[in-house]
Design a binder for these strands. Structure first.
Lengths: 211, 211
DNA sequence: CGTGTGGTTGACGAGCCTCAACATCCGTGG
DNA sequence: CCACGGATGTTGAGGCTCGTCAACCACACG
C-alpha cells in the first residue's frame, strides 16, 4: 500500500521567493515544515490581500481546481513538502482515510476563512490587530510570547489595514499596557483577557428584557 | 449500492426561519433546491457578517466539524435537501466518486471565501457593490437582469458596509447610467464593462519601465 | 561610514458610519 | 376598496476612523 508520505518532495525556499504565482497551473499542493509564508492576491492597481499566513503544519495550494487563484510566497526562509495532485488524488480514491483527511483539511481552511470574513468585514483596526495577535499566540509555547516574522506591510495586507495603522495600533496597545515589545518583531501579551475582549467587541450596555 | 440522493430529506423553510444557529450541533449538511438563504455570524455587540448567500444548487453546513460556527437562515421561503453527515461519511468512505465530489465542493467554497477576503479587505464601497452585482448576474438567465431577494441590511452585512452605504452606492450607479432599477429589488445591468472594471480597481496610470 | 529597507510618528483629508427625517411598499383590517 | 401602520428603503448632515503623504528614525549590510 502506498503511503502519502512517500509521494512528498521536500523543497527549500529562500525568503521572498514565490512558491507559485496567481494563474499558474496547479499540479501540486504543499505542507509547511518550517518557516513562514503567505498566500496573497493583487488587484490591478497594486492593492494586496493576504488570504492566509502559512506556518509549520499548514497545508496550502490544494484548493486550486485548474490554476491557482492566489499566489504563495515564502516570507522567511521556508521548507515545504510538495505533493503531486494526480498521485494523491489516486491515493484518495482507494484510501478512505486519506480522502477523509483531505476533506477535513479543506473544511478547516474554510472555517478559518469564514472567521477572517468577520474580521475584515466588521471589526475595527484595534479588534483586527488583537485578533491577529491572539491567533499567533495560539501556537506560542507559553501562549504569550510572539515572534512577528512578517513585515508591517504583510500584517496590514492580512488585516485589510495600512502598515501605518498596524504600527499605530501596536503602539497604542503598548501604551495601554496590553502588550510589550522587544524590537519590532517580538511581542509579549501582557493582558490577555483585555485583548480577548477586544476581539469580540464590547457587549452592548446591559440589555433589558429578552436574553 | 447506496445513492447519495436516497439519503436526503426535503425540508421547506419559511422566510426568516433559522436552518441552524451558531453553536448548534452539526449532524447534517444541506443543499439548496430553491429560494435564498445566508450563513452569518454575530459579534456580541450585534454587528453581523454574512459569509455567503445561498442560492439554488449551493451546499452549506458541511464545513462544520463539531458544531456550527455560523448560523444559517432562510431569507425567502426556501426548500433544501438535508443530508445526515454520518451516513454520507460512510458512503464517501466506500465510494471514491462521492468522496471526490465532497472535496471539490469544499474547495469551491474555499475559493469563493478567498475571493471575498479581498472584497472585504481591500475594495471600496463602489467596488464591493459592483462585485456583488456581477456575482449575482452570473446566474441570471440573460446575465444582466437581477432580482435582489435580500434586504439592504443583508447586502450590507455581506459586503461589510452599512445599509445606507449600499443604498447610496446603488443610487450613484443608477445616476451614472451603470444600472437601472425597477423598484428596490430589481436591477438591470446597463454597462457591464464599466462594472467589471470597477470590481478590480483601475489600472495604475501607465507604468513606465518594467512590465 | 554611507545606503537602503523597514518601522514609527505626525498632519491632514476622504470615505464611510451614525443619526435622523422622510418616502415607499405592502399586508391587514375595517 | 381604501385607510392605516409597520417594515424597508432613500436621502441628508455631520463626525470619526482610518488612509494618504511626508518626515524622521533604527538597524542591517556592503
Amino acid at each position: 500500500m502506498i503511503e502519502l508520505a512517500a509521494l512528498g518532495t521536500v523543497v527549500t525556499l529562500g525568503r521572498g521567493t514565490a512558491v507559485y504565482r496567481e494563474g499558474d497551473e496547479a499540479p501540486h499542493w504543499y505542507r509547511v515544515l518550517s518557516g513562514t509564508g503567505c498566500t496573497s492576491k493583487l488587484l490591478p492597481d497594486g492593492r494586496r490581500q493576504i488570504a492566509a499566513f502559512l506556518h509549520a503544519g499548514d497545508y496550502f495550494g490544494f484548493e486550486a481546481l485548474g490554476e491557482h487563484g492566489f499566489a504563495a510566497e515564502a516570507i522567511t526562509d521556508m521548507v515545504v513538502v510538495r505533493y503531486p495532485k494526480l498521485r494523491t488524488e489516486a491515493l484518495a480514491r482507494t484510501d478512505g482515510t486519506v480522502s477523509r483527511r483531505f476533506r477535513e483539511i479543506a473544511c478547516r481552511s474554510l472555517l478559518a476563512a469564514y472567521e477572517r470574513l468577520i474580521t475584515l468585514g466588521r471589526k475595527t483596526a484595534g479588534e483586527r490587530v488583537a485578533t491577529f495577535l491572539l491567533e499567533l499566540a495560539r501556537t506560542a509555547p507559553d501562549g504569550k510570547t510572539i515572534g512577528l516574522t512578517m513585515s508591517r506591510t504583510d500584517i496590514g495586507d492580512y488585516l485589510g489595514l495600512t502598515l501605518e495603522t498596524v504600527s499605530r495600533t501596536l503602539a497604542a496597545m503598548k501604551h495601554d499596557g496590553l502588550i510589550e515589545m522587544a524590537g519590532p518583531h517580538h511581542v509579549l501579551l501582557l493582558d490577555r483577557p483585555a485583548l480577548e475582549e477586544m476581539t469580540e467587541g464590547d457587549e452592548p450596555a446591559l440589555r433589558v428584557g429578552r436574553a
